[in-house]
Amino acid sequence: MKSHLLLQVLARYLIPLILLFAFYVQFHGDFSPGGGFQAGAIFSAAMVFYLLAFGLPAAERVLPPSWLRILACFGLLLYAGTGLVDVLLGGEFLNYSVMAKTPLEGQHIGIILIEIGVGMTVASTLTLIFYAFAHWSRLP
């Protein structure tokens, strides 16, 4: 592996900030621009940066592909599962109003749950796609 000193030093400072911003966008999406999809894309951008700076083996030690595969499935299932829970609680599919005592509280819980699902699936799918490309192109 070639050493990319400048890239690695930059990555060490920037990646924590990018990850923090991703989580901010994820959990503050109700109040400011953003949401699960944006957060997932930003999170995977951080992982792409990490991979470019430190190489595929290092990135696979941080987030193993097997975990990412499970996370991608889990995110989608969390989304669909939220909808099914609504059905079981007596509402329509994805009608979160029935999830708590008041409709507003229910909406809040439902939206946070599905946004987490979206974020998980998008982040892990994009990272997995990039792992596959990096594997074939033998980047650093």
Binding site: D30, P33, Y79, G83, L94, Q107, I114
Partner: peptide, 24 residues
């Protein structure tokens, strides 16, 4: 109706939740 100040999130996650499920 949703208690979410950001209308984009309200539409994507609540009103059009089924579409977003399809997107994911």
């Amino acid at each position: 109706e949703t208690g979410v100040p950001n209308v984009v999130t309200a539409v994507l996650a609540s009103y059009r939740g089924f579409d977003t499920l399809g997107e994911v």
